[in-house]
Structures are given as C-alpha cells and as structure tokens.
C-alpha cells in the first residue's frame, strides 16, 4: 500500500516550471531512489512533499490523509522527516540538543510544564533524552560520545549523520534523505548503504533518497525514479532506469556539469 502518493504535482517560480505534473509514490517499507541531473527538480520535489513549498497543482496523500497545504511542522507530526542537501544543523546547540529538538512533536511540555517542572515534565525530559540518545546511538560510536559538543564542531560526515539522527528522533514513518552520501569517502559510503538498509529493516521507515552517486542508488533502492527538467522521465528498477534512453540522454547532455550541489533547488532563508 502507498504511504505517500503524489498526483499531478506542479510548481512554478516566476517563469520557471520547476516541477511539472509529477506522479510519485512511496510504498510502506520501500526505499525509493530519486535521480536526475542538477536542476532536475529533485530537491524542489522534497520541498513540496515536506511542506516548504505549496504546489500550484496536484494532490498529495500521506498515510491516508490529504496533506496539501500543510505546513512542515504539521507534516513532521504526521510522520515525515527529512535531511538537507547542504547540511543544516542547529549549530550553536550541542549534538544531543539537536536530536532532542527532533522529539518536539512527540512531546508536549508547554509553558506551565516547563515552569513547574513537575513529575510529568521530568519524566518527559528523561524520555526525550533517552530517545535522542537512542537515535545518536544508531551510528555506533560516531555521535554518542560527542553528544555534548557543539554541532558546528563536528566533522562533515558526522554532521550528515547527525542530521539523520535528528530526523530519526522525530519518529517518522517516511524519511526523506537529500544526497546523504555527498562529500563522503568510499568507506563512509559503504557504511551509509548498510545504515540505510538498517533504517528500513530495524526502524521500519520507508525511505526516499535523492542521490547523485549511482553505486549508492543501485545498492539501496527498491525502485528508482528519474527526473529531468521537472518532469518524471523514467521509473522502475535500477537496471530499467539506468538503461532508459531518455535518462542516458539527460545525463549525457549534461555530463560536463555533474558537479555537486543544485543550489537553486535548496530551501533558502
């Protein structure tokens, strides 16, 4: 059954049709890879799904509920979590606090609770800490021992891991990863492949990931969707998509600039 179902989603920015009439779905327990050259609309699609952009047209259903027009915080509550292409952590907060923020929608201490600091609040704080540490612990000894350091002081790959841990702390059903392997060395990529598998198998998340690194896509994806110029050009197993003529052309046509970072797609402040 479909956890996420998009039908005919379009968005335009001024004169640019960033995403056009895209149908997209992710089934429960599935890992979907999204590929496409720079500027294909991958991150824009993520921003639409997670509520950062409101699409001009199209319907979106998540976990049986109509989610069009919902804000990011409401979607997080419903069970959607994401990471960002350019790592965006709360830099002046510690590693642990970053993950603790992830628990926000799952907890409810408000003004009075915080002021009175009664039993319920203390228990909830303990639970938040435990869940946050559990999420950090997913990455073995990479994050947990450094939980009291500032997020900004972490190494790059660990910052990427922390972003995933923070997303995990929101207890999502669907996890959207935006280029999780970017900037990682081969050994770290191997680890990432294994970890993405475990996220599905152990944590039970359904996963959508954008990735430029084809070996990573090949190893983890159950299904691959290819975008170009905001249009879905292919869908199927990795081998089907990789041999698709349109996909090959899309990549070859832009072979020169397959460098990092579709900055234009990123959510900007």
């Amino acid at each position: 059954m479909s956890l996420l179902e998009l039908k005919g989603v379009s968005i335009r920015f001024g004169g640019v049709q960033a995403v056009k009439d895209v149908d997209f779905h992710a089934d429960l327990g599935e890992i979907v890879g999204v590929i496409g050259p720079n500027g294909a609309g991958k991150t824009t699609l993520f921003n639409i799904v997670t509520g950062f952009y409101t699409p001009d047209e199209g319907s979106m259903v998540f976990d049986g509920a109509n989610i069009s027009g919902l804000k990011p915080n409401a979607l997080t509550r419903l069970g959607m979590a994401r990471t960002f292409q350019s790592v965006r952590l709360f830099n002046a907060m510690t590693v642990l606090e970053n993950a603790m923020v992830g628990q926000h929608t799952r907890t409810k201490t408000g003004l009075t609770g915080a002021l009175i600091k009664g039993k319920a609040t203390l228990e909830e704080e303990a639970m938040i800490t435990a869940k946050a540490q559990e999420a950090l612990g997913f990455f073995g000894q990479r994050l947990l021992p450094r939980q009291n350091q500032l997020a900004s002081s972490m190494a790059y790959a660990d910052r990427r891991r922390l972003e995933i841990a923070r997303a995990m702390a929101t207890e999502p059903k669907l996890l959207l990863l935006d280029e999780p392997a970017a900037g990682m060395n081969p050994a770290e990529k191997e680890q990432l492949i294994e970890q993405v598998g475990r996220l599905r198998d152990e944590k039970g998340y359904s996963i959508v990931l954008i990735e430029h690194d084809m070996p990573v896509i090949k190893s983890v994806s159950d299904r691959v969707v290819a975008l170009d110029h905001g249009i879905k050009i292919a869908e199927g197993t990795y081998d089907q998509v990789a041999s698709n003529q349109q996909v090959i052309e899309a990549y070859l046509g832009k072979a020169g600039d397959d460098a990092r970072g579709d900055m234009d797609d990123e959510v900007s402040t």
Binding site: G51, F52, T54, G69, K71, P72, S268
Partner: peptide, 8 residues
C-alpha cells in the same frame, strides 16, 4: 527589496 520566498 528581495521578494519573499514562495512557501507555505
């Protein structure tokens, strides 16, 4: 000034 981001 710069126009606002298109967002929810």
């Amino acid at each position: 000034g710069a126009p606002e981001e298109k967002r929810a």
